Simulated scan of single mutants.
Amino acid sequence: MKKLSTTLLSATLACALSAPSFAADYTFKFQSSDPAGDKNFQVQKEWVNRVKEMTGGRVEIDLLPVGSIFKHTETLDGIKMGILDGQITATEFFSGKDPAFGLIGNTVGAWSNTSQLLQYINYGGGYELMNELYAPYGVKFIGGSTTGVESLVSRVPLNGVEDLKGLKLRAPEGLVQRVFAAAGAAPVNLPGSEVFTGLSKGVIDAADYTVFSTNQKAGMNDIAAHPVQPGFHSLPLIDISMNKKKWDKLPADLQTILTVSVRDFAQDMTTQLRIADQAAVKAAQADPNITIHDWSAEERKKFRAIARTQWEEFAKSSKNAQKVYDSITSYLEQNGLL
């Protein structure tokens, strides 16, 4: 009996060792523009896991945090070179390659909420335009998401456009700075890592940084106790895209699954961040030292009118930028948003 048991055990082990490992049919390496510790990256990892489940293990994506192989502004090159297979990134990071990416990636002042941007991308021509812009780089735009309309952190009360005049405001270079400058502010170049120190020491009066919940968690609202929420300016396009040749080799069913999964990712990302923002706003409202400023529809309209003048100027930077301008303004006008 003992000899038989040993024989059976040996046979079982032999079978286990010789059994084929069911590797994915398609494995891809993607790089994110977010660090591993950010909530954004956590939501992206959840998307990666869902893709594996939805495809029955046929597709596996290895998602790397920002800077793992390429700088956040260079992942497009990484895909073109074949070192990366895809990316989850803010489209505006590629404005140095073509101003069109900056304009569609963050049309400052255009969108009042996440649904407006996503409707444009999915149903208003944005999806087709992004694929046209990415074509020269051999990249397929699978779909878009966003985070949320970014809050503005401020040491001084901001109740409308008039209050922006002379404001020492940290803002990213490019279209964001141009719009705020046109509104009368004095934009300051300052890395994101120095925003907290800049505010605490009075080097800047306010900052275009990120969404309310992230600002609150970082203690920004404690040292700049006059946040503007909901925001009225930045709403970045977050895109998931990959090597076009590798996309074309995928069976139609997997292409469909990936496309639909990105729409779900957008819903997941915007919802989770909105929930986090709502909780953070409640916490801030309970703090007597923090005053939240919510701009009226009239003031938001004034800012958008100023922003539009800068969109027009930015559109002159390239033929593609003009295409983006025409597409977005046409959509906004048709939907009564201008």
Rank of each mutant, 00 (worst) to 15 (best):
57 G>M: 07
126 G>R: 02
205 D>F: 02
213 S>Q: 00
30 F>I: 12
210 T>V: 05
259 T>A: 12
74 E>G: 04
220 M>S: 07
132 E>F: 01
337 L>W: 13
308 R>A: 11
199 L>K: 05
15 C>H: 08
237 L>Q: 10
109 G>S: 11
183 A>K: 10
30 F>L: 13
166 G>E: 07
315 A>W: 06
68 S>Y: 00
82 G>P: 10
140 K>A: 06
53 E>F: 06
143 G>I: 02
32 S>P: 10
314 F>N: 06
311 W>P: 01
104 I>H: 11
319 K>L: 08
48 V>P: 07
93 F>H: 13
163 D>N: 11
88 I>M: 14
3 K>G: 05
175 L>P: 08
29 K>F: 09
44 Q>I: 03
85 D>E: 01
249 K>N: 14
179 V>H: 07
108 V>C: 10
210 T>Y: 12
230 P>L: 06
294 D>Y: 00
298 E>C: 08
96 G>H: 15
331 Y>A: 03
163 D>M: 01
27 T>H: 14
198 G>M: 04
198 G>S: 09
173 E>A: 15
162 E>T: 15
79 I>G: 00
331 Y>Q: 02
264 D>R: 11
321 A>G: 05
112 S>H: 14
31 Q>A: 10
131 N>F: 04
252 A>C: 02
74 E>V: 00
285 Q>M: 10
43 V>M: 07
3 K>Y: 13
102 G>V: 11
312 E>N: 07
7 T>L: 14
113 N>A: 09
95 S>D: 12
335 N>Y: 04
177 Q>P: 05
76 L>A: 04
210 T>E: 08
34 D>R: 13
297 A>C: 01
127 Y>H: 14
305 A>D: 15
112 S>F: 12
119 Q>G: 09
241 S>W: 08
211 V>F: 05
234 S>E: 08
311 W>L: 02
147 T>Y: 01
252 A>Y: 07
298 E>P: 01
66 V>L: 08
287 D>K: 05
160 G>E: 07
297 A>N: 04
268 D>P: 00
40 N>S: 14
285 Q>D: 08
335 N>K: 01
97 K>N: 11
111 W>V: 13
52 K>Q: 14
165 K>C: 07
267 Q>G: 15
6 T>Q: 14
173 E>H: 10
21 S>M: 14
197 T>Y: 09
148 G>K: 06
77 D>A: 12
244 K>C: 03
188 V>I: 15
66 V>K: 13
55 T>P: 10
302 K>H: 05
252 A>K: 14
57 G>H: 08
128 E>P: 00
73 T>N: 12
184 G>E: 14
271 T>F: 11
103 L>F: 12
329 T>R: 00
280 A>G: 02
287 D>L: 03
197 T>L: 12
125 G>I: 06
201 K>A: 07
296 S>F: 06
176 V>G: 05
73 T>K: 08
